[in-house]
Design a protein around this nucleic acid. Sequence first.
DNA 1: TCTGGGGTCCTAGGACCC
DNA 2: TCTGGGGTCCTAGGACCC
Length: 429
Amino acid sequence: MGTASELARAQPLAAPRICCLDLDTFFVSVERLLDPTLEGKPVIVGGKPGSRGVVTACSYEVRRLGVKSGMSLTEAGKRAPHAIYLPTRHEVYGTYAERVRAIARRFAPRVLVASIDEMYLDFSGCERLYGSGAAAGGSGGEDRTGDAVIEGAVLQLTTAIFDEVGLPSSAGVATSKVVAKVASALAKPRGVMLVPAGVERAVLAPLPVRAFPGIGPAAEARLHAAGYRTLGAVAEASVADLQGIFGAWAPSIWRGLQGLGSGDLGRERPAFAEHDPEGETVGSISNERTFREDVTDPATVEAVLCGLCERVCWRARKRHVKARTVTLKLRYADFHTLTRSHTTAATSSELELYPIVKEMLVAARTRPLPIRLLGVQLSNLGMFEQLPLFDRNERVGAAVDSIRARFGFATVSLATARGPRGGATRGRG
DNA sequence: TCTGGGGTCCTAGGACCC
DNA sequence: TCTGGGGTCCTAGGACCC
């Protein structure tokens, strides 16, 4: 019996314990597992230097030379001419990521997959689960002991990932997701950093503004222009001051900087969710392609556009969703980029979508410049049930899918997707 | 330093309806 | 006939993340 505050004093609610687990130079680490001679050498994943594209991952050896992920391969080639350049192999990395997730689920009751190499684990209330015996001799108060217990569990987790899969990882633990994420970045490589409740602001204060998730190049420039250089300085500002810089994000960024960010995992991103808890699917499915060389040839343009339609529709059908909105993305040789979208009745058939997208391209392409990139995106997605297929287009789609399920995506395609001289535009992968 | 590909979320204007 | 305002949907563009 008693008021809520009396109860809280008698039985202190432990602060949330959110762990952000991040695999170190993930793609490089997987490549090294598959080819141990790469160990200790400068490695860049993303493609050949000089080819169009960017660095998707790089080892610490080349980071010392100023190479960063996102940098163009041309630039990387200048800074690290002797590095080993490898193509990106997403399917391979996916299987390793799944093994890591399976280990994570052994350690925490709730796990949220944030990206291929990053996840959040909720250790809130797990102090007793991990605290039996050994860690109970802490000298500090209740919370200190809890911190030590959780830190030990996270250390066990990263050790298990290394022992069982062979991948190095880092982790940050804090009372909120954002601070845990910042801490995991500070812990790299191969470290664990725990931010005790109450010291979040002190940990964030000296960091440059870009260290905070959600502050990118544009916000950084606006912050610098307004005189803010560190997260400590931004934390001093009022929500009203931040409104002009972050717009709708201001309150959540302000809270995050005070260490008051959300202490629960939040919702799984649909792209990673196995089942949609609300029964309704949000999100989008897109594929885009940058040409090796800018193209003008209409047959090539059509073939690629058709192939993109096929691919997104195929992925939509695999997820049992239909789209109401289709968006075309067009990038000219001079990098000027535009999008055109169209909303109709829900579909997942390329036979229906391709003519629409083709028409959008004709209407959108007002300049005589060669094309650098084409993209197709499906959005406004909704679930559909697997019913008998009355519709001709759906039967065609199902037949195509059953062949692809056995032999791969590239084995069948619409005639238009096969390029000018009848040859497939894509290899068998 | 000639700049990938997969996503999510926000902004802002216009159409349309009540 | 003129006027106002809110809500929702659509479209285009852009910031940000990995």
